[in-house]
Design a protein around this nucleic acid. Structure first.
Lengths: 111, 111
DNA sequence: CCAATATATGAACATATGTTCATATGTATG
DNA sequence: CATACATATGAACATATGTTCATATATTGG
């Protein structure tokens, strides 16, 4: 912790933007698909079950936020994590929800 | 990592929901305000500069997702992290964006 | 250059989401 | 009980957002 209870507003906004991008199921699937080895757009589309067009739209957003980076090889564009810290966090959180007792599917909360 | 490249769809959805909730600036500020010690609704509202009504709406969502938990003391309702793992991650990510070179405010990305 | 493949982009649209305002509920104290 | 304070809830609304479809832009090979 750098400065307890005193985070700059701009940092909160930056972080919220990152979370917002990861907060869409399709986009999160795309992200997860890119963790590990660089993936081509078409392959990602097939893996997550979305159109290449949609995947490309989302990849653009993830790239603009510097969450993914792009490298071209021939006709294909490969995407991979631009930030190891974020991808580590992602895997960590994924393990977290995987281990957690998956009650509370959407439940109400009593007092 | 539990099962490399093989995360259940439901887990991705769960995680996306968590990220979605943290992806709103107001809600993220509320969350951050609750990390550390339990906070009353009115105090949170004052700290993040939002109406008590709005804060209450957001708290309800964060509580439904089991990100925050509620305890009453007299007239006031205190909210605190329900999940240490999430709050640790939050602080960690906050440090991450605080340390990072804050170029790319919103920039376009060249090829 | 032309065709074929892979990706990207823009407009349009339906839906979701954050916020506000008015009002209700709860809780202590006189 | 009545008043005051703290929080919660519901409806309404403006705006943002994910998706689709059509089309454009690479890039390679003939």
């Amino acid at each position: 912790m750098l400065c307890p209870n005193c985070y700059a507003d701009s940092h909160i906004l930056q972080l919220a933007e990152i979370f917002r991008l990861m907060g869409d199921p399709t986009r999160l699937k795309i992200l997860v698909a890119c963790v590990g080895k660089p993936r081509a757009v078409g392959d990602i589309a097939a893996e997550v079950g979305a159109s290449p067009s949609l995947v490309s739209h989302h990849l653009r957003l993830l790239r603009a936020a510097r969450i993914l980076r792009k490298t071209r090889q021939g006709k294909q564009a490969f995407y991979s994590p631009a930030d190891e810290h974020i991808s580590h966090m992602l895997v960590d959180m994924l393990d977290h929800v995987s281990e957690a007792p998956d009650d509370h599917v959407d439940a109400e909360v009593e007092d």
